[in-house]
Simulated scan of single mutants.
Amino acid sequence: MIAGFQGVRKSVLAVGAIAWGCAVARQNRDYVECFCVAVLSVAMFISVIFWFLFPNISLSGGSSADMYTSLFEGHRRLTGFFAGPFHVALGALVLLTWAMVRSARWPCASFVVGAIGIVAGYLSLVRTFYPALALVCVVFLLVSPTLIHAARRLAVFGAALSVGLLLSVLFDTTGRLWWVVGSLAGASEDSRFLNRIPGYWRSIELFEQSPVVGWGPGSAGDTLGAIFSSSSEHVTAHNIVLKICVEAGLAGLAAWVFLLVAILVSLRGSGARMALALCLLVALFGLGLTGSAIEALPISFFLFLIVGLSCETTSGDRSEPRIWLSSTRRAHGGA
């Protein structure tokens, strides 16, 4: 029972945040969104400060990261208030995504939130943070309301990348950024990646053995192997899709697809909120390629709550700009 409860907590609880977000009154959604971002920003900021000033003090009494996970190439990873560096990386992506999308409306707050996200993501030393961030930037370009906006955003991305590279040369004396990013090219020879391959194959085997309903909540949950009995099947999937397939089978996978389609339909043409929700989902999927990102509570809870806030639950005002592709088609008579 304990294993099942832990599995539900890790796998299902965050999804309830979508319903909570949808239930928030339209006039209160900005306040709830800003509250989520503020709480996450403060937690990240304090975590970073303690990482620099008090490195021997642990802020998280429930950290599930072992020594191997807490270090990368001998360098300490940022965990702070969170269970592990993967949680920090996802939180940093949430902050950076919000800063990008909301920069036009709240420029000062976006600058501060984005700066915290950059530092936290860098200190997490999670390699998939950078490909996931690149995917978020690509999606943010694609949902630009006009081609001019897309060009401006591309110019800003180029300038930000240039500044980031310059700062890394000036201040990253240990070269840890280049170790992290450079290791992506050698993934085929990297022990951290190779050690996950048996988990991938075992996940596929368990899915084949119970393809319809899977093995139940928590059977592919990270750090839950110890609480499963010897007669119960458990695997650390290291992939969000494999996790769903192992725990819930085709039925669960179909339910997730239905949920995502419903979200995408409700986001149609809703401007900045649409961009924010899409980019957050892409960030979750990007990190989920090598980890069960949905389990990264409370970060995943905040992420899904903001996605729920972005959903149109009524046929209200859709006065915000649509994506440029749709605008272009209307301008040419739907061709």
Score class of each variant (00 low, 15 high):
Val42Phe: 13
Glu208Gln: 06
Phe81Tyr: 14
Trp215Tyr: 07
Gly271Thr: 15
Gly288Trp: 04
Ile263Ala: 14
Val265Trp: 06
Ala43Cys: 15
Ile57Trp: 07
His332Glu: 10
Leu284Lys: 02
Gly286Arg: 09
Arg153Ile: 00
Leu125Glu: 03
Phe228Tyr: 09
Arg322Asp: 00
Val212Tyr: 01
Thr69Asp: 04
Trp256Ser: 04
Glu312Asp: 12
Ala38Ile: 14
Ser110Tyr: 13
Leu287Phe: 01
Ala160Leu: 15
Phe5Pro: 05
Gly269Ile: 08
Val235Thr: 11
Pro107His: 00
Leu90Asn: 01
Leu53Trp: 10
Ala23Asp: 15
Thr328Ala: 13
Leu133Gln: 02
Val24Leu: 12
Trp201Tyr: 09
Ala251Pro: 06
Ala132Glu: 01
Gly214Arg: 08
Pro145Tyr: 06
Ser326Arg: 05
Ile244Tyr: 09
Pro211Glu: 10
Thr290Val: 15
Gly216Trp: 08
Ala89Cys: 06
Ala115Arg: 14
Ser63Glu: 02
Phe5Ser: 01
Arg273Gln: 03
Leu224Cys: 02
Asp317Pro: 05
Ile18Glu: 00
Leu170Thr: 10
Ser70Pro: 09
Ile197Thr: 04
Gly269Pro: 11
Arg318Lys: 12
Phe82Gly: 00
Glu208Thr: 09
Ala83Val: 01
Leu287Asp: 00
Ala151Ile: 11
Cys34Gln: 13
Ala283Gly: 14
Ser327His: 15
Ile306Arg: 03
Ala160Cys: 15
Val94Ser: 00
Val257Tyr: 04
Leu309Gln: 13
Ala335Met: 02
Gly308Lys: 09
Leu284Pro: 04
Ile306Phe: 06
Lys10Asn: 14
Trp215Ile: 03
Leu170Asp: 02
Arg102Leu: 03
